[in-house]
Design a protein around this nucleic acid. Structure first.
Lengths: 210, 210
DNA sequence: TCGATTCGGTAACAAAGGTTACATATTTGG
DNA sequence: CCAAATATGTAACCTTTGTTACCGAATCGA
C-alpha cells in the first residue's frame, strides 16, 4: 500500500499524515462495475483513489439517470466527505468505470485530521473545489449545449478516462448516461460517422478525429 | 453588528469565534441589484449573509445565463470559500436579489479558524454540503424536467425568497434566468393563467394556487 | 445448431422549445 | 401631450429531441 499512497499522494500530504494513513487506512481493489455507493445509503468510510476511475451518477426516483463526472487518481469523493461529517445520506451513485485501487479512511479520522494537518485541509478543500467545478461544467453542458455537442464531449472524456481511442459502450448505455434515448444517440453517432469523426462497431466505437 | 451576528449565527458558532468575528469582520449593507461577485474576478473576503437574499448565476462566454440558487440568512458562498483558499477565480456571478446585510471576513482568518474552531469547520462543511445539494437539485430540474415544471418551481422559489405571492419580473427576465426565450415563457405563463394558477400583470405575476 | 436475445439502422410521427414577425397596450421622457 | 421605449400576446414556422415500430445482423445459450 505504501508505494501506491506515496505515488498518488506523496506530494500532497506531509509525512506524519502519510504514516497515519498507513496505520488506519485499508487497501482495497475493486473490479470494473463494482458499486461503491448507492443513493440513500449511509457512508462509513472515505475513499482515496489510487488508480482506475470511478463514475459518479445522479439518479432520480423515476429511474432517470445522468452521468455527473469521473474521479481519477488523487481524487476523493466530496459527496462522501459531507455525508461522513454530516451523517447524511448519499445523493449520488458511484460505480467503478475501470478496475480500481482505493485506500479507505475511517470517518472518525477525518475530523481529527482536519484540525491537525494543513495538508489534509487543503486536500479536502481542493477536492470540494474540483467537484463543484466539475458539477458546473456538467451543468453548462446540459443547459447550454445541444445533444450532438454533449455526445462528442462524452466520447472524448470517456476515451481519455480509458486511455485510448475506443469507447466500449452500446448506444443504449450512452443514452442512459446522457439521459437521452437510444434512437437519438444512434442517429447522432451515425452523423458523426458520416463526417468521418468516428467508426461504429458492435459494442464499441473508435474515435478518429474529434 | 453584534445582534445581527448573534441572531443569525449564535447557535452555530462558539462564543470565542463570535468575538473574533466581531473584531475582524466588517458589516456591510447592500441594495437590491448590487453585484457581489463577477466571473473571473478574485475574491478577497468571505461574506456571511445576515439578512436578505443573494442569487447565484452561471454565465458562459457567449452570454448564456442560468440561475443556480439563492443564498439566505445563515448561508455563505461556498464558491467564495474555495476561491479564497485556493486563490482561484470565481466561476459564478452573485447579485443581491433583495437588500441584504453581510459580514465580511478577511480571507486569511479562514484558514486559521478552520484549524482552531470545530464550529467553524462544521459550518464550512455544511455550507459545502448545502451548496452541492442545491447544485444537484438545479441539475435535476434542468436534466429531467420540462420547461413548464421548471417555470412553476422558479415562481414558487422566487415567491418564497421574497416572502409573498408576487413575483416582480418581466417575462424576459424570467427567460434569462431559466435560459429560455421570452416567447416560450410568455406562452407557458399564459397557460398557467388559463389554468387559474397565476394572474399576469405588467411587470409582475401574482401566484394563486401552484 | 437453432431459437432467443441483444444491438444497431431507419422511417414516420409527435412534442417541446426556439425563432421571426408583427400587433397592441402601457409607460416614460422630453 | 406625443414619440420612443418597454412589455406582452399571438401566429407561423423550424429544429431538436423523443417515441413507436419494425427490420436485419450478430451473438449467446441450451
Amino acid at each position: 500500500m505504501i508505494q501506491e499512497l506515496k505515488e498518488g499522494y506523496g506530494h500532497v500530504f506531509e509525512d506524519a499524515l502519510i504514516n497515519e494513513i498507513l496505520q488506519v487506512g485499508t487497501f482495497k481493489e475493486i473490479p470494473e462495475g463494482f458499486k461503491l455507493m448507492e443513493i440513500g445509503h449511509y457512508v462509513k468510510a472515505m475513499p482515496l483513489l489510487v488508480s482506475g476511475a470511478i463514475k459518479v451518477y445522479r439518479e432520480d426516483t423515476d429511474g432517470n439517470e445522468l452521468l455527473l463526472y469521473y474521479l481519477e487518481k488523487g481524487d476523493t469523493c466530496s459527496m462522501t466527505l459531507t455525508c461522513c461529517m454530516g451523517d447524511a445520506k448519499s445523493e449520488v451513485r458511484a460505480v467503478a468505470e475501470t478496475d480500481a485501487k482505493l485506500i479507505m479512511i475511517p470517518v472518525h479520522k477525518m475530523e481529527e485530521w482536519t484540525a491537525k494537518y494543513k495538508s489534509w485541509r487543503n486536500f479536502v478543500f481542493e477536492s470540494y473545489h474540483g467537484r463543484l467545478n466539475e458539477l458546473l461544467n456538467t451543468l453548462d453542458s446540459i443547459a447550454f449545449d445541444k445533444m450532438d455537442m454533449r455526445l462528442v464531449s462524452y466520447l472524448k472524456e470517456k476515451a481519455r478516462i480509458n486511455k485510448g481511442d475506443i469507447v466500449h459502450n452500446t448506444h443504449q448505455e450512452i443514452a442512459y448516461e446522457l439521459h437521452s434515448s437510444r434512437v437519438v444517440i444512434s442517429r447522432l453517432l451515425k452523423k458523426l460517422e458520416q463526417m468521418g469523426k468516428i467508426e461504429l462497431h458492435r459494442n464499441y466505437i473508435k474515435l478518429l478525429q474529434l
